[in-house]
Write a protein that binds this DNA or RNA. Sequence first.
RNA 1: GCCCCCGUAGCUCAGAGGACAGAGCAGACGCCUUCUAAGCGUUUGGCCGCAGGUUCGAAUCCUGCCGGGGGCGCCA
Length: 584
Amino acid sequence: MRSAADARSARAPYAVGSMPDTRTIRPYLESLVAEAARAAVAAGDLPDVAIPGAAIERPKDPANGDFASTLPLRLARAAMRPPVEIAQAIASHVPPDPVIEPPVVAPPGFINFRLSVPFLQQQVEHIISAGDEYANLNLGDGKSAQVEFVSANPTGPLHVGNGRGAAIGDALANVLEAAGYRVEREYYVNDAGTQTDYFAETLYARYQQLFGRDVPIPEDGYPGSYMIELAEEVKGRHGDAYLRPPGDPLPAELSELGINLMVERIRRTLERFGVRYDRWYSEKSLYESGGAYERAMAILREAGMLVERDGALWFASSELGEDKDNVVVRSDGRPTYYASDIAYHWDKFIRRGFNLVIDVWGADHHGHVSRLKTATRAVGADPEALHILLYQLVTLKRGGEVVRLSKRSGEIITLDELIDEVGADAARFFFLLRSPGAQMDFDLDLAVRQSSENPVYYVQYAHARLCSILERAREQGLSPDGGDVGRLVAPHELALVREMMRLVDVIENVATRFEPQHLPHYAQDLATAFHAFNDAFKQQNDPGLKVLTEDEGLSRARLRLVLAARVALARVLGLMGMTAPERM
RNA sequence: GCCCCCGUAGCUCAGAGGACAGAGCAGACGCCUUCUAAGCGUUUGGCCGCAGGUUCGAAUCCUGCCGGGGGCGCCA
C-alpha cells in the first residue's frame, strides 16, 4: 500500500513509523539537511550543485547546540556563495520537526541543531527499555569478526604488557559485539617452534635437577623460578615417569605436558582478569596432514611465490613490494613462525571466512605487519579486512620510580601480581585509558588509591550512588514505575540525558576506528554528568530539590532518569570488562 | 641506513579537517544537620616540538627537520 508514509520515507527514512531515537538521530538529521538542501535548490534559493553528505557533527561547545551541519561550508566553493547565505537558504527549508528546535545559522556557515526537550525526555524511556542492549548498533550487520589477542608464548607467565593487550582486545571484542558483529575471541597458542623446544629443554633440566642430577638449564632456556614450580608440579603428579637415562633426549610427551600446564596457568590468569576466549588455537594444529600449513603453502607454490635459496625455502615477498624475501622453511626443514602465521591467517580468512580480523600485538612486532598483510593477500584474502592493532610498552611506576622487577620474585612483574595489587577493574581501566599507540606509565600507587585522584573509583562510585538512590527509593516505597519523564526539565537533568546519548557515538567510534581509549574517557564524562546532576540539588540549598522530593510525581520522574543513567553507566563499564558495584 | 609509535597546560594524557584546543591530577578559593564528600562549584595555567605545503578552514592531512622510545634474525 503506497501512502503518505512512503512519500515521507523518501525524504527522511528514519521518520517512518516512529520518531528517531538516540541511535538514529544522526542519520535522521543528515537526511533532514540533505533534503532541505535539495528543496533549496528546487526553490531556486541555491544554485544547482551536487549535494555531498550532510556532515553532521557534534559541536565542541554545547552553546552551539547538540548537532551541527557543515554542509554550507563544503558547498561554498561550488555554489560560489558565502557559506552563511547557503546556511540560511538550507535552514529555511528545514520543515518544523518535533525532534529539534528550529535550526540556527552561525558564522562562518554552520547550521546548528538543538534537540527538543520532549525528544530528550523520550530518550530516558528509550534507554530504560533498551536495557543491557542500550546503544547496540548494526554497523557489523551480522558480519563475523575475530579478535585475536594476548597470544603470548606459553613459555612463561603473562606479564604486565600482556595485560594491556588483554584489556584492549577484550574491550574491542565487546564493542564490536555491541556494534552488531558476531565476534570470536581467540588466543593463538605457540605450541610449536623453537621457543617451545627451549621451554621443554628447560623444563626437563629442572625436572632432572629435582632428582639430583647436575644438569644445567640451556643457554637459550627460561631461567625463571616458575620453571622450577612447573617441574615440581610434573614430579608431584607423575613422579619419575618422564625421567630418561642421563644424556638421553627429553621425552616428547613432557614438552606437550609442560605447554599444557603453562597454558592452563595463563588461562586462569586471564579468567581472573575477566577475559574468556571462544577458542585456544594451537599452532601445532596448523601442521596436521592436509591442514592449513599445507594448503597455504600450496597456494604460494602454485603462484610461484616460493623459491629455494641457501638450502632454505623463501617466500618471494619482495616481488609483492616488501623490502626483502623472507624464509618460510629453514634449511633444517623446520618452518618459521612466519610460515605459521601465513597458514594461520589463511585459516582465519579462507577456511573460517571471518569478514573482519583484528590482531592485537605488542609494538615490538610491528616489523611483521607489512609482511603479514602481503602474505595474507598472496593466499587470497583481502588485506583490508585485517587490522593489526599495535600497543606500545607499559612502564610500571611506584612513587614516581620505575619498577622493573618484582620484589616478591625478583623477576618480571606478572599480570597476576598486578591483579593482586590493584585488582582487575583498576588494571583494565588504566590499560584502556591511553591510546594503544602511546607508551604508558602505569602508576601502581594511584591505581589502588581510594581518592579523587583515582578515576576508577570515580566512575564506579557514580554507579554505586545511582544504585543507592534507587535503593533508598525502594525503602520509601517509591518506584520509578509510572514516572512521567515530561517532568524532567532542569538543565542538569537534560545535560545528563545528553551525555547518556553520547554512548552511541562512542561505540561507533571505537568499533570503526579501533580506539578503545574512548570508553574510559566517556565513562568519566558520564560519571561527571551524573555527579553534577546529583549535586546540583544540594547547591541550590533547597531541601525540596533532591532526586527524592516531597513531590512524588517529580521523584518518580527523576528515578526514571536515575534508572536510565545506571543502564548507561553499567553498559560502558561492561564494555570495558569492569564490574559495576552496587555499593562501595 | 630503513621502518613504526610518540612529542598538546607544572604532571599524566584526550582530541572525528571545522567554532574560543579539553579532561584528570597538582596549585588557589569555596561547599557536608541532606539519597555515599570515593562528591560538587569557581579559578590559575598553552609558540599544540620546529619549518614549509594542501585547504574556505590544520593540533588533526602531506613533506622536511629536531627530540624520546621501539623494531629491522633461517627467534616469536
